[in-house]
Amino acid sequence: MQKDHLLTRRRALLTGAATLGAAGLAVALSPVTGNRAAPPAPPAAGAQAARRPLQPSAYRLRPLTGYGTPRTTGRTPVREEPLLRVDGRGRTMVLSFDDGPDPRYTPHILDTLARYDVRAMFFVCGEMATENRDLLARMADEGHVVGNHTWTHPLLTRLSRRRIRSEMERTCDIVEKAYGERPEWFRAPYGAWNRAAFRIGAELGMEPMAWTVDTLDWTTPGTATIVDRVEDGAAPGVVVLSHDAGGDRSQSVRALRAYLPELLDSGYHLTVPRRQYA
């Protein structure tokens, strides 16, 4: 019953996409729904460093007015390199968070995304997901995309094909149980990809997603520095990498509260990718 409920909510939130891309894959960007709420309180960190102003745009968030045709499944291509950015109409960007879910930080990130009615991607580790299934269920309810980040976050290039498959497949299984659907995207820990990872990922029905802008938030450079890196790197099609687990992520939480409204005020669509198969 719970799984059926999650599937129903999930499909209602994320149905419909525009056809884009090549090699049998299209990446579509779904507009987020609703109006913006009042801005949150300023981050607890100190004063932010000066940065260049973001350029305004005529593009604004628009409510979802209808649903497209249901997605049909098919063969996933085996790639030789990961996707680094996404295509879309207007000033579209994707926010992604790795290594979670972590009950200390992920709920705060979800709260901020919900405040502005924005969807994001969460690449989860199986060993974290199995202890925090309620957070994956919340991601499903709120329309976020959950991807596969392996079970224990190993360096895949040092593993046998059997170990790589086990890391990926176990995480697919726990995501399906907690989130309601098997993941359609995967990200290699440390950005270390090899032929076996691409092939096994494709066999499990997943596309490899990397990133365009790395906030390097795992180095805890300071909230203002993380904000600057996101805003300086903002551009159509950009995929931003941040973290919601793996260490002290309080700076990442505060940075999101600061740069998210700035991106929206500058006319960016913060969206999630959708796949269509040949």
Score class of each variant (00 low, 15 high):
G191I: 01
A210I: 08
A37V: 04
V227H: 02
T215Y: 02
M209Q: 14
A26L: 06
G66A: 15
T225K: 07
R71P: 06
T69W: 02
G34T: 12
A37G: 14
A18W: 00
R158C: 06
T152S: 13
R162A: 15
G21K: 02
D141V: 07
G143D: 01
T225P: 06
A188C: 15
E203R: 06
S252G: 08
H144V: 09
Y190H: 09
A49G: 11
R79T: 10
P154T: 04
T19Y: 04
G205E: 09
T73Y: 06
Y67S: 13
A210D: 13
T223S: 03
A37D: 09
D117V: 10
T76H: 01
N148Q: 07
R60Q: 11
L95F: 00
L155F: 14
L110V: 04
P101C: 09
R36V: 03
D248E: 07
A197P: 03
G147I: 01
S160F: 09
L6Q: 11
M168V: 07
T69P: 07
P261A: 02
W211K: 03
W193T: 13
L135K: 02
P103H: 09
L241F: 01
G90D: 12
V239K: 01
V240Q: 09
R275F: 07
R51I: 07
A23T: 09
V146R: 10
A255C: 12
Y190V: 04
L155D: 15
L159V: 11
T73A: 15
R115T: 11
E131G: 11
T220H: 13
S266D: 02
D102I: 04
V253Q: 13
R163A: 12
R91I: 06
G205P: 00
L216G: 14
W211C: 01
K177C: 05
L54I: 03
I174C: 14
R36C: 08
S160R: 14
P236I: 12
A234Y: 01
R79A: 08
F97A: 10
R165W: 13
F123C: 01
A140L: 06
L263D: 03
S242W: 13
D134M: 04
T225F: 01
S252E: 06
I164K: 05
G222T: 03
P42V: 05
M209H: 09
R36K: 13
W185K: 08
R138L: 10
G201M: 04
K3Q: 15
I164C: 11
A210Q: 03
V240M: 10
A196L: 09
G191M: 09
G143S: 03
L256Q: 13
Y105I: 04
P107L: 11
P154Q: 07
R10S: 15
P77F: 01
D134I: 03
D4Y: 04
G46R: 11
E231R: 12
R158T: 10
G68P: 08
K3L: 12
L25A: 01
N132D: 04
Y105V: 02
T219K: 07
P208G: 11
V272Y: 00
Y277D: 09
A120H: 00
G24T: 07
R89I: 14
V238S: 12
L159D: 04
T73L: 13
R85S: 15
D134N: 05
W151P: 01
D87M: 08
R195L: 14
V213F: 00
V272P: 00
Q55L: 13
I109L: 15
W193R: 07
H144I: 03
P101I: 09
R165M: 05
